[in-house]
Write a protein that binds this DNA or RNA. Structure first.
Lengths: 199, 199
DNA sequence: CCAAGGACTGAATGATGGTTCAATCCTTGG
DNA sequence: CCAAGGATTGAACCATCATTCAGTCCTTGG
């Protein structure tokens, strides 16, 4: 026995893996999923295309992970912003502002995560993303109903519908590159009304 | 000059074209967009794959037309149902019931039209579909605002958000194959609240 | 320094499926 | 019935990438 991969090598492998993920995210943010060929990702990560397969069994596996990571980051940011508020109305306003603000900050990435045509296998990960948002929102809605701030309703259905509303309302502005200044306040008003927040 | 295509031939060509569109729609309804290779569509239409290209310059052109046609049929059905009602609240209830009812009747087709991964060129047609719904709804919302049945709001934004909410709320049930019996009434309640219909 | 064996390379492979085209069949006006 | 020329065929073509692999480079323990 003359060679046995050691810590140093393992660290380098792990660094390559991270670079590949970062490269995929970078290309997505610049050119969308469409620009993410394995060759392009590998080149940007500084590895040969063949080496890519030392780290991920298939391209779909990489992008499942990329979507999961990026989505989690978004959901976490939204959750963190909402957690600073106390009333359901304020929490939901924070959700909308954070979600929309971040999406408009990285429109190409947001479009890829939300709506760009992707592999069916990667698309499945998108459902997870949307469900994560829905569950976050459902928690706030349920709390609002329990406290009496909101009228009785099915928090799951409300949350799902609101996620759809948010995503749909952002697709237009994301394609255009900008949102009118009144879009986000109007969206907050809409969502408050949809929740039954008393005016 | 010895051959000049005549009415009879033109009619046959046009019939082939229609059969191709119908075949594409049929395969979409049975196996989704994923099952729609040019070869499969041509075979079902009873023409050779090569003949397909006498009728459409590319596959994307066919499906743009298929999506446009199918979408228009859906929008028309929804518009017809809503036109029978008088108040905005009833009109919107008709929209939700018709939209959801038809989607659940042909879940595979509805999924393909709404959410299945497709060519980017075909995906663009989907935006048209959603915008058509949004415009239909925006008309009703604007009328409701004008008559005072609804509080002041931007009909376009409300309509866009509602289309997103409707679509998102249907994707789960479409994947599952059925919707719980309370889903549609709950969705109507949600949408009434979102519009500001007074209870 | 050495031999073992894992890591790395990138050109070749292969699968998919849209698109083309040379050959053939039909239709038409004469 | 004929010649002209459009319609039809479906097998071949081709472009695109994801994936593989034989050869090479590096790292390791001795």
């Amino acid at each position: 026995m003359a060679y046995r991969s050691t810590e140093r090598v393992k660290a380098r492998l792990s660094a390559s893996r991270e670079r590949i993920i970062a490269a995929a995210l970078g290309i997505m943010a610049e050119h969308g999923y469409a620009g993410c060929s394995v060759a392009a990702v590998a080149e940007r990560a500084g590895v040969a295309t063949g080496s890519f397969y030392r780290h991920f069994p298939t391209k779909a596996d990489l992008f499942a992970e990329v979507f999961r990571t990026a989505s989690q980051r978004e959901v976490d940011a939204v959750a963190r912003a909402a957690a600073l508020e106390t009333s359901t109305a304020e929490q939901m306003a924070a959700v909308v502002e954070t979600f929309s603000g971040r999406a408009l900050q990285s429109p190409r990435l947001a479009y890829a995560l939300l709506a760009e045509p992707v592999d069916p296998a990667v698309d499945a990960e998108r459902l997870v993303f949307r469900r994560a948002y829905a569950e976050l929102i459902a928690g706030y809605v349920a709390a609002g109903v329990a406290s009496g701030e909101l009228p009785p309703q099915d928090p799951e259905l409300t949350a799902t519908a609101l996620v759809g509303a948010l995503a749909e309302a952002m697709v237009g502005p994301l394609a255009a590159g900008v949102a009118g200044p009144e879009t986000i306040p109007a969206l907050i008003t809409f969502i408050h009304r949809a929740l039954g927040v008393s005016p």
